[in-house]
């Protein structure tokens, strides 16, 4: 018996010891970055590590909800840098999940365009630094559908698009669209209005082929669907692959969002997180991110450096007219439960 124990125990102790030593040695120079999938070029991470010696442990999520659930569960520990959308910055800040950002350590904060700082969801940028912003609009495969005939969200309801429409797998994006078609606020918490939006969506369901929020451009590129919702960055990447894809700002108003860098309350590598934020705010880096990912940079100096084609690309940088009626999503609190129950019903009630 003792021999067996010995045989098991000795290696186990060694493994544990070496794990401890490894983690102590590594703890000095790393930063845990939790970001949306396909939201940062690998090259940027490599360059950061090369310049600073700080190792980036990079993991991704595909919805604010998934990210929030994890941060909440870990009580603001475990990650040093996270990228929630504006309405989640608001929520997380209010719930004490975020750490104040020391802007005196961010030499590049001044590069940000003033129209993107000091937003209502985080006055004075106490907790958050703008990373990228973008919109949810309509993408059309012009080889199959004449983009001139598509102007509004309501056009998705046309009977000729039966089985050809993709919607994002996101309850807020889908209901926002329906509410706007009805002329209501996309951020409503009124149960009657939410139900009206549901009734309207039921009429859309025969057209809906699938819900996807993972890499929504793929079903368009592989020809499964020809029209539907998409984020502008994904539309940009689809158009890079094939010019037949056209991005349209619906007349009822596109859905806008801003994603922001925040430091969770109990992050362990706060200095490195600040270093990484400052690095991401550098004009040349912000420019590289924008050109690769296809979302708009809130960084004024970076926009100046952009390739002319990119800066004048309306998919990424919409004109004032494009954004007529467009609105940011805001936190809706407990009303999410009402949305969610209609959402479940929408997906099964046929």
């Amino acid at each position: 018996m003792n021999r067996i124990l010995f045989k098991i125990a000795v290696p186990a102790v060694f493994i544990l010891l070496s794990l401890c030593i490894a983690s102590i040695a590594a703890a000095k120079q790393e930063v845990y970055f939790y970001n949306w999938s396909e939201y940062l070029p690998e090259e940027v991470i490599r360059q950061f590590t090369k310049e600073t010696g700080i190792k980036v442990i990079y993991t991704t999520y595909d919805s604010n909800e998934a990210m929030y659930a994890k941060i909440r569960l870990l009580d603001g520990k475990g990650y040093d840098l996270v990228v929630p959308s504006g309405y989640f910055v608001n929520k997380m800040g209010r719930e004490g999940l975020l750490r104040e950002i020391d802007k005196s350590r961010l030499n590049n904060f001044k590069n940000l365009d003033a129209q993107h700082t000091d937003r209502p969801f985080d006055p004075g940028n106490r907790y958050s630094i703008p990373y990228l912003w973008g919109s949810t609009g309509i993408i059309v495969n012009s080889a199959e559908i004449d983009p001139e005939t598509v102007r509004s969200w309501a056009d998705l309801w046309k009977p000729e698009f039966k089985g050809k429409v993709l919607l994002l797998n996101d309850v807020r994006d889908v209901f926002f669209m329906s509410l706007r078609v009805l002329g209501l606020s996309g951020n409503t918490t009124n149960p009657d209005e939410i139900q009206q939006a549901y009734d309207k969506l039921v009429q859309l369901m025969p057209n809906v082929r699938l819900f996807n929020s993972d890499t929504p451009r793929v079903p368009y590129i592989t020809g499964e669907v020809s029209i539907g919702q998409i984020w502008n960055g994904e539309a940009f990447m689809a158009a890079e692959e094939n010019e037949k894809f056209v991005y349209i700002y619906p007349t009822e108003g596109a859905i806008l969002w801003m994603d922001n860098l925040v430091i969770p309350k109990r992050a362990e590598n706060v200095d490195n997180a600040h270093a990484l934020i400052d690095f991401l705010l550098r004009p040349d880096i912000a420019r590289a991110i924008c050109e690769e990912i296809g979302y708009a940079s809130p960084n004024r100096e970076a926009v100046k450096l952009l390739d002319k084609d990119i800066r004048n690309n309306r998919t990424i940088y919409p004109t004032k007219e494009d954004l007529a009626g467009a609105d940011f999503q805001v936190d809706i609190g407990e009303a999410i439960v009402i949305y969610e129950s209609w959402w479940e019903k929408l997906k099964t009630g046929r």
Partner: peptide, 22 residues
């Protein structure tokens, strides 16, 4: 395979935990 349209009980439970936070 179903484009997230055919909810199975598994989807439903996952949605409650992740998206609705219920």
């Amino acid at each position: 395979l179903g484009g997230a349209k055919d909810l199975l009980i598994g989807n439903f439970i996952k949605n409650q935990f992740l998206d609705a936070r219920d």
